[in-house]
Design a binder for these strands. Sequence first.
RNA 1: GCCCCGGUAGCCCAAUCGGCAGAGGCAGCCGACUUAAAAUCGGCGCAGUCUGGGUUCGAGUCCCAGCCGGGGCACCA
Length: 860
Amino acid sequence: MTENRPHDDRAEHDYDPHRIEAHWTPIWDELEPFSVDDPSDARPRKYVLDMFPYPSGDLHMGHAEVYALGDVVARYWRQQGFQVLHPIGWDSFGLPAENAAIKRGVDPRGWTYDNIAQQRASMKRYAASFDWTRVLHTSDPEYYRWNQWLFLKMYEKGLAYRKDSWVNWDPVDQTVLANEQVLPDGTSERSGAVVVKKKLTQWYFKITDYADRLLDDLNQLEGSWPAKVLTMQRNWIGRSTGADVDFVIEGHHSPVTVFTTRPDTLFGATFMVVAPDSDLAAELAAGSTPEVRMAFQDYLEQVQKKSEIDRQDASREKTGVFLDRWAINPVNGERIPVWAADYVLADYGHGAIMAVPAHDQRDLDFARRYDLPVRVVVDTNAPVTGAIPVITPEMMEAGDIPALDPAATGEALAGDGRMINSGPLDGLSKQHAIKRAIELLEERSTGRAAKTYRLRDWLISRQRYWGTPIPIMYTEDGEEVPVPLEQLPVRLPDAEGMDMKPKGTSPLGSVASFVETTTPDGRPARRDTDTMDTFVDSSWYFLRFLSPNDDTQAFDPAEAEKWAPVDQYVGGVEHAILHLLYARFITKVLFDLGYVSFTEPFSALLNQGMVILDGAKMSKSKGNLVYFTEELDQYGVDAVRLTMAFAGPPEDDIDWRDVSVTGSQKFLARAWRLAGEVTSAVDADPALGDIALRRVTHRFLADVPPLIEAFKFNVAVARTMELVNAIRKAVDSGPGAGDPAVREAVEAVAIALSLFAPYTAEDMWERLGRRDVARGREGLVAFAGWRKADPLLLVEESTTAVVQVDGKVRDKLEVSPQIGADELESLALASAAVQRAIGERQVVKVITRAPKVVSIATKG
RNA sequence: GCCCCGGUAGCCCAAUCGGCAGAGGCAGCCGACUUAAAAUCGGCGCAGUCUGGGUUCGAGUCCCAGCCGGGGCACCA
């Protein structure tokens, strides 16, 4: 070196992310730094889980965000001295593989595993700190045999059952869909086709048995899960409480039960409505006159032609037909007419309602259309004891009391009030009347308290190939026989030569060698040819990671005791309902079966936003794609990861146009260069270093952990940038590169960057002379441990107190942070600037909040 | 229609308990270095926090009414 600048050779002086990546990749491959396998390790544990990907093509920018953010959390807890389990796998069953296979005439298995290999390579390059010894693929027989085991356990408990019913049919994918997979507009969330109803015999999981627990246990997650997700789950379960009421129907063999949330209004029921597409409506019509039968048939046809969208439009005029049947109101013996109308849904409650037009807007609309009687039973003008009177004295005086005639106004009276026209309920408030009405019904055995849910049982049968075969066979006389556990897995047959084009029945049906089997007692039988919804696969995968190679059980309960539930789950809000609800359900089932000791699978949840471009979701058709590998090629892995963390709050969308990956790269270069400029010895005593820089460093060390724990990654990165700026200044125009405080600060930066930019951080650590090769993985910066802030360095020497006069800042005082209120107040009043501001005016009030502010109010 | 979240500088975003509106970045401008450029380093911030009221000594922060954007639910008895 001829020049006096000591670091002037390119390799050392230029930050080259690709060179750094090439340097560390083989070292990490050899050390496997993040595998968790030491049973004697006594450190506390954290289980950090990122939602596993579906292997369609290579990773995209959305994956880049989840895996960057999940990794910040995993790497943070490692620095805090925890053993961190951070596994990854693939959700590798499902329709895209099958559709791609049909389109290109290839085996879905090959397509799937090729994509997995590609994604796996990308994840390794991306330096996600996964435990690569625990990888699982749900399409492996070693995995899906345990889906079958789970199914059989649920079957034993009566939680898996088969029924014949109207199902959602996707005419494009030619398979059934769970209710959850049908969008509010009636189209398939996968294919976008308009979903039609079809009657089929299918397998269901009895999730409705768990509705109360699924709802009530959400309270435990309050504060740990995004409020938005909790709301969506609550809405989805949709519990209503009220009463079931039995109405005898004249000339009908059994009473009809209706569900109502307003049993208090029973005396106001003036007609009954049944869903036209229910069995009940068909029976009632069949028992009526020929004219009614014809009218009903016409109406039913009209209804069935309507799309889901039309049907859900609440503003549409209500239609219906009178069935010429009569129901008897159990509380007053009154005869009320029975109608069929499509504003009543067949699959909610009992598919029949008692209509109380005076107090329900829908019933009122219908009653007005067909001239049915309207009877007010709640005087909503009457004050209710213990509640705010609905009529104020002012209204009385003005004569401005709303009319009590919904039939005339068209507005149903939904509010509280005093019961009238209701016999034994008269005079009660709504709340008391509900209670009393239920008592009356129960006394007479014509009704009872009841709850109803929007949640339906989970339909799991799919008429497709690439999924878990349902482990049931049927004998010639139709008996269901579960496949014995020791015969699991029921393997998918080879797809070679199979016609997988959707035909409405499972492709497995055409494979004789698969279908034909015998029962354990030797009778000939045929296997079920459907496969399971892939949400079954993902409903328990977090447990399989705990003992992924165990071929004797789905998971090891002892390992579950150690690691589960998941401490931090990270993934997209698109799974707010489906996946999370199913995983919660299966967890509760496993709890009831005694396999786990907890009832909620994910103790905390972080939803990251989407990566968008120019304000719009990226899509091939819009041509606004950002390619993952191109970004990595151009800027390096660390710059992309850092950008994900720095862009803003994790739950916000990141518009790739608004961020600067170049900026991230420049920052990393600044930080990295500092590591090469430090000249103090590795064992230099920081206590001898520059106190001002040390204060900045230790403030940083104290502030960052709570920021990470609150998921304020963007702020944590900003604080790191701030520290780097301070170091730059110290080196260039302060105590200089040889000061031990500079080393201390740069090391703090390296440790902080190990969360966001693992390659750069590791390289800095090595340049600082801190990497201890002999200690293997423990010698890496990833395991360096977060440095504790020295409390003595956190104490400010002085602080600025602001003096306000009538709300305006008039002076600023440098004072000790320990200053007393009296002292600060006298200092403030002594200030010339303050006195000038007060002038001739009289001080009326002085508020002092030491050491921050003195506020003086004056008058005159 | 109902419910939830957000609106701070040209842009992305910070701002503990109500206490000086600015931590960080992008873009821009100026300067140093350079023959020059790039890179690098340094410097530069009069937006009063969507609007209108209110509470308070003091409001980005709390309350009320709106506006705009995003999300959820919506004929669920």
